[in-house]
């Protein structure tokens, strides 16, 4: 199979039909074809985690995923985390705890944290450290990111909802 073909993707709940070539990464398709530039790229070698999106709920590196291999799957990008103009509790917590500085790792951190809380609503500090360790942050020293995730987890448990 060579050349262009149309694949179906569900991104942030929206169905898309998009023309791709086999060598195009999910990152390229999201950013260049769907104009969803919230997903960022950096190292391209699987080391920084910046390009993380959720594929069927799981954190994936979009820069090392061929778009064609995730056809028909559900993709969640940072643009899909807020709902009906309401921020996800993780997003609010990141802001309120000062867990965001330059913001370039933030989409990946938030989506990774969401996957963690979906899997384990009551994580320990150690479990958070482990789960987010694949996403590098050069600004914050990670302290406030971990605090924000701890606090958001508690808030989501208390409310029984990810949104206020």
């Amino acid at each position: 199979m060579r050349g262009k073909q149309v694949i179906k993707l569900t991104v942030n709940g929206e169905p898309y039909e998009v023309e791709v070539e086999p060598h195009m990464t999910l990152l390229e398709v999201l950013r260049d074809k769907l104009n969803l530039t919230g997903t960022k790229g950096s190292c391209g070698v699987g080391e920084c985690g910046t390009c993380t999106v959720l594929v069927d709920g799981k954190p994936f590196l979009s820069c090392l995923t061929l778009a064609i291999t995730v056809r028909d799957k559900n993709i969640l990008t940072i643009e899909g985390l807020a709902r009906d103009k309401k921020l996800h509790i993780l997003q609010k917590a990141f802001l309120e705890h000062g867990a965001v500085q330059c913001g370039f790792c933030t989409p990946a951190m938030l989506l990774t944290a969401k996957a963690l809380l979906d899997e384990n609503p009551n994580p320990t500090r150690e479990e958070i450290r482990e789960y987010i360790s694949g996403v590098l942050c050069r600004c914050t020293g990670y302290v406030k990111i971990i605090e924000a995730i701890m606090s958001a987890a508690e808030e989501i448990r208390r409310r029984g909802s990810e949104y206020e």
Binding site: G46, T52, S133, G134
Partner: peptide, 9 residues
């Protein structure tokens, strides 16, 4: 192996 992303893929 400390990357959930790498372990998922």
């Amino acid at each position: 192996i400390h990357s959930i992303q790498v372990k998922n893929m």
